[in-house]
Amino acid sequence: MIINNLKLIREKKKISQSELAALLEVSRQTINGIEKNKYNASLQLALKIAYYLNTPLEDIFQWQ
Rank of each mutant, 00 (worst) to 15 (best):
residue 1 M to E: 06
residue 1 M to H: 10
residue 1 M to Y: 14
residue 1 M to A: 10
residue 1 M to G: 08
residue 2 I to R: 09
residue 3 I to T: 13
residue 4 N to I: 06
residue 4 N to V: 06
residue 4 N to Q: 03
residue 4 N to E: 03
residue 4 N to R: 03
residue 5 N to A: 05
residue 6 L to M: 08
residue 7 K to Y: 04
residue 7 K to V: 06
residue 8 L to R: 15
residue 8 L to V: 15
residue 9 I to S: 02
residue 9 I to K: 02
residue 9 I to C: 08
residue 10 R to C: 13
residue 10 R to E: 02
residue 11 E to I: 12
residue 11 E to R: 09
residue 11 E to K: 10
residue 11 E to N: 08
residue 11 E to D: 08
residue 11 E to H: 07
residue 11 E to Y: 05
residue 12 K to H: 09
residue 12 K to I: 10
residue 13 K to C: 12
residue 14 K to Q: 12
residue 14 K to G: 15
residue 14 K to D: 08
residue 15 I to R: 02
residue 15 I to T: 04
residue 15 I to G: 01
residue 16 S to N: 05
residue 16 S to F: 07
residue 16 S to R: 06
residue 17 Q to W: 03
residue 18 S to E: 13
residue 18 S to R: 14
residue 19 E to V: 09
residue 19 E to W: 06
residue 20 L to D: 00
residue 21 A to H: 02
residue 21 A to D: 01
residue 21 A to V: 04
residue 21 A to Y: 02
residue 22 A to P: 00
residue 22 A to Q: 13
residue 22 A to F: 10
residue 22 A to I: 12
residue 23 L to D: 06
residue 23 L to H: 12
residue 23 L to Q: 10
residue 24 L to P: 00
residue 24 L to W: 01
residue 25 E to C: 15
residue 25 E to H: 15
residue 26 V to G: 01
residue 26 V to Q: 02
residue 27 S to T: 11
residue 27 S to M: 03
residue 28 R to K: 13
residue 29 Q to S: 13
residue 29 Q to E: 15
residue 29 Q to V: 10
residue 31 I to L: 12
residue 31 I to W: 00
residue 32 N to E: 15
residue 32 N to V: 14
residue 33 G to V: 07
residue 33 G to T: 07
residue 33 G to A: 15
residue 34 I to Y: 02
residue 34 I to S: 01
residue 34 I to C: 03
residue 35 E to F: 03
residue 35 E to G: 03
residue 35 E to H: 02
residue 35 E to W: 03
residue 35 E to D: 02
residue 36 K to T: 14
residue 36 K to R: 12
residue 36 K to L: 13
residue 37 N to I: 03
residue 37 N to E: 05
residue 37 N to D: 07
residue 38 K to C: 13
residue 38 K to P: 05
residue 39 Y to S: 08
residue 40 N to Y: 12
residue 40 N to I: 15
residue 41 A to R: 01
residue 41 A to E: 01
residue 41 A to C: 15
residue 42 S to W: 05
residue 42 S to G: 11
residue 42 S to L: 03
residue 43 L to H: 10
residue 43 L to D: 04
residue 44 Q to T: 13
residue 44 Q to S: 14
residue 46 A to F: 06
residue 46 A to E: 03
residue 46 A to N: 03
residue 46 A to S: 07
residue 46 A to M: 14
residue 47 L to M: 14
residue 47 L to Y: 09
residue 48 K to R: 12
residue 48 K to M: 09
residue 49 I to Y: 00
residue 49 I to E: 00
residue 49 I to S: 00
residue 50 A to L: 03
residue 50 A to F: 03
residue 52 Y to G: 03
residue 52 Y to R: 04
residue 53 L to K: 00
residue 53 L to S: 01
residue 53 L to C: 02
residue 53 L to G: 00
residue 54 N to Y: 05
residue 54 N to F: 05
residue 55 T to W: 05
residue 56 P to G: 05
residue 56 P to D: 08
residue 56 P to L: 05
residue 56 P to W: 05
residue 59 D to E: 14
residue 59 D to I: 09
residue 60 I to N: 01
residue 60 I to G: 01
residue 61 F to T: 01
residue 61 F to N: 00
residue 62 Q to N: 08
residue 62 Q to Y: 09
residue 62 Q to E: 09
residue 62 Q to F: 08
residue 62 Q to I: 11
residue 62 Q to K: 11
residue 63 W to V: 07
residue 63 W to T: 06
residue 63 W to H: 06
residue 63 W to L: 07
residue 64 Q to W: 07
